[in-house]
């Protein structure tokens, strides 16, 4: 049983709009969504990397997912628009606050670097302009092996005809080189009306050059593997991780607590036996 995910909801400072977006996503049956913060470094002036807001502040009460009984899961995601190799700093402390990390390379060289070297989860494919470079097999295969996925977002295609053409053209070009594997489809929706249901997206994948099975994976299992990949990025192969404790724990001697430790407690069963 696969669950549907939409890993790109555009962040807006207007929290009521964001809340409506998440509610609509839950109504459509997405069990995980990611709020996307876009960071576009420019050469002229220095910008700060946006800091993720805690989910609790943004959405006080998480809506229940359609057809399930548990609330929707909301992640944070950062997308770095990469137009120069210095824009992505692998060790930046700011990146650690985000659950998912994505880059959108604009030149072939950067695309190669993003696929082979950069420690990211998602590589966004530009859908609003004609593709400035070809997708070569070597970097695409490298990315597939590392578990990095390519993202095609469909909200731009809904807006007007030219962008729709670019979206379809760029995504079919991508599918030719990656053969449908490691692709996710996401919305990049700014308003609730730009979201679409998961089954519609599965069928939409056919237009984007995906096969039936691959397009289903593109909204479900590939997304799940990205989320897991993101967890391993933060930790040592997903096994160990370190957190800084906010303050030293209050020192307590064992005698303070009323209950003795579990090992020393008399077993109720043993008493009855004897």
């Amino acid at each position: 049983m696969s669950v549907f995910m939409d890993l790109n909801l555009v962040y807006s400072p207007d929290s009521s709009r964001l809340q409506r977006l998440v509610e609509t996503a839950a109504h459509l049956g997405y069990s995980t969504v990611a709020i996307n913060y876009v960071y576009e470094p420019t050469a002229k002036k220095k910008q700060d990397i946006p800091a993720p807001k805690p989910i609790k502040d943004l959405i006080p009460e998480l809506p229940i997912v359609q057809g399930r009984s548990r609330p929707i899961r909301v992640l944070n995601r950062l997308t770095v628009m990469m137009s120069d190799s210095s824009h992505f700093r692998a060790t930046a402390a700011e990146y650690r606050g985000f659950d998912l990390l994505a880059v959108q390379p604009t030149t072939e060289k950067l695309f190669h670097a993003a696929c082979m070297i950069c420690d990211v989860d998602i590589i966004c494919i530009s859908v609003t302009e004609k593709l400035p470079f070809f997708f070569k097999r070597a970097p695409v295969n490298g990315a597939t092996e590392r578990g990095v996925v390519f993202e095609v977002s469909y909200a731009a295609a809904l807006r007007d005809s030219t962008r729709r053409r670019y979206t379809i053209a760029n995504s079919t070009a991508l599918m030719e080189s990656c053969r449908g594997r490691n692709v996710i489809l996401s919305s990049a929706a700014e308003t609730p009306l730009e979201l679409r249901g998961p089954y519609d997206i599965t069928n939409l994948g056919v237009l984007f050059g995906l096969s039936d099975g691959d397009s289903k994976d593109a909204v479900s299992s590939s997304c799940r593997s990205v989320v897991l990949h993101a967890e391993t990025r933060k930790t040592a192969s997903g096994i160990i991780y370190t957190v800084q404790h906010p303050e030293a724990p209050p020192t307590k001697t064992p005698g303070d607590t009323g209950d003795p430790p579990a090992a020393k407690r008399a077993k109720p069963g043993a008493v009855i036996d004897s």
Partner: peptide
């Protein structure tokens, strides 16, 4: 169907989207 963004009826445009169940 996903590309439907509004339905025009009685001279009004209703922004909406279809979700296949």
């Amino acid at each position: 169907l996903p590309f439907i963004t509004c339905i025009e009826t009685r001279g009004q445009k209703i922004p909406c989207f279809l979700n296949c169940l």
